[in-house]
């Protein structure tokens, strides 16, 4: 990095937080430009030389990542005000989209705001996995013995279930949702997608009533406000609006049945 070659350098502003409950603050870093840089490589460059533009030596920025190919969802963060995966988000794209990268208007990196911060850009996404436990997001089998061939599934159902199976629990849909908050009990689109996914499975459907009972609760399907940001930001392009409407229909029918049969 040479100061004289300013044109080839760009700036990144990172929201930092030393630990849970600590006050966040911002630090700006200067990095040499290369074409097709992704955000993860920027963070790696900062880690190798953690010096801010003020010349201050600081602790390297902490972030979470695993697969580096947009499959695991771990490196999800807010870049330039919008949520996405830092492995598949390119510096060039952000510069073009937001006109950022200059010293006066740097690219901002922030942790997701709807999850508790562990440190810097690393958040705790446990709430999503706990919600999957609540809805019994699994297919129940009662042993290890051979259960025989599975039931036949239409091509249409396969297509929808395959799309829903792509969910990587990254949290983009929740981060962009105006109804979902850190302190609120709304479960969000990720759970609705997976509820439908398991309700559509022939064996998984044996737990359908249990799942719909969870959907009926406060924070369940009826708290969705139809802003539909989830489907816009989903990196895996899950048909989340369709899932929400279908779970809405299933829960409506489930409630009517409950009303007339008295079944819990």
């Amino acid at each position: 990095m040479t100061a004289s070659d300013a044109k080839k350098n760009f700036y990144i502003k990172v929201k930092r937080q030393d630990g849970p409950g600590k006050n966040p603050y911002y630090q700006t870093f200067e990095l040499p430009y290369k074409p097709n840089l992704n955000i993860i490589s920027c963070l790696q460059a900062i880690a190798s030389n953690p010096v801010t533009i003020d010349g201050k030596q600081v602790a390297p920025v902490v972030w979470d990542c695993s697969c580096l190919e947009e499959v695991c969802g771990a490196c999800t963060m807010v870049m330039g005000g919008k949520v996405g995966q830092s492995c598949s988000t390119l510096v060039d794209e952000l510069m073009e989209r937001d006109g950022t990268g200059s010293k006066a208007n740097p690219i901002t990196l922030e942790p997701m705001s709807k999850f508790p911060v562990v440190r810097d850009l690393f958040v705790d996404r446990a709430s999503m996995f706990n919600n999957l436990k609540d809805i019994k997001g699994w297919v129940p089998i009662d042993g290890t013995h051979h259960l025989g061939g599975g039931p036949r599934e239409s091509q249409e159902e396969q297509d929808l279930r395959y799309a829903l199976s792509r969910c990587m629990t990254c949290g983009c849909c929740l981060e962009a949702c105006p109804q979902f908050s850190l302190e609120g009990n709304f479960v969000g689109a990720q759970v609705f997608g997976q509820t439908l996914y398991f309700n559509m499975h022939e064996t998984g459907a044996t737990l359908k009533d249990d799942r719909l009972n969870v959907m009926q609760q406060a924070g369940g399907i009826s708290d969705c406000g139809n802003a539909q940001n989830c489907v816009e930001v989903c990196p895996k392009e899950l048909p989340l609006v369709e899932a929400i409407a279908k779970i809405g229909r299933q829960t409506t029918v489930h409630s009517v049945k409950q009303f007339f049969t008295g079944k819990k």
Binding site: P178, Q179, G225
Partner: peptide, 11 residues
Amino acid sequence: QWKNNTTHYQY
């Protein structure tokens, strides 16, 4: 319960 985010998500 509304957390407005129309500035960043202008859909």
